[in-house]
């Protein structure tokens, strides 16, 4: 295990932690937070694995920026739908999920 992979390892841990939270929690806000932790994990793996001693690879960095924008948009959309759902139903979780 090389020290350069420390970011990739952290990414693996974050992704798994996020996945755990995503499945365990029922509150939609918590699940969205867990999704964002998973996303950060995936981005860290993407950037971290590119550290291979051949200099900085700009392509994964660009991919991560694109990924972050997509994650922001998805999270925003999820929050919009969640708030509308909450206003219509008064619930913070999905039905049949209890």
């Amino acid at each position: 295990m090389s020290g350069a992979l420390v970011f990739a390892w952290s990414g693996v841990v974050l992704f798994s932690l996020g996945l755990f939270g995503f499945i365990v929690h029922r509150h939609l806000l918590r699940r969205l937070l867990a999704f964002n932790i998973m996303g950060s994990g995936a981005f860290l793996v993407l950037v971290g694995l590119a550290q291979d001693g051949r200099g900085i690879d700009p392509v994964p960095h660009a991919m991560v920026i694109t990924g972050i924008v997509v994650a922001v948009a998805s999270t925003a959309l999820a929050l919009v739908v969640f708030r509308r759902w909450y206003r219509a139903s008064g619930r913070t979780d999905l039905p049949e999920d209890t």
Binding site: A42, L46, L49, P60
Partner: peptide, 11 residues
């Protein structure tokens, strides 16, 4: 996200 992680490993 699972797909993206797969892409990261392939890249």
């Amino acid at each position: 996200l699972a797909y993206l992680l797969g892409v990261a490993l392939l890249y």
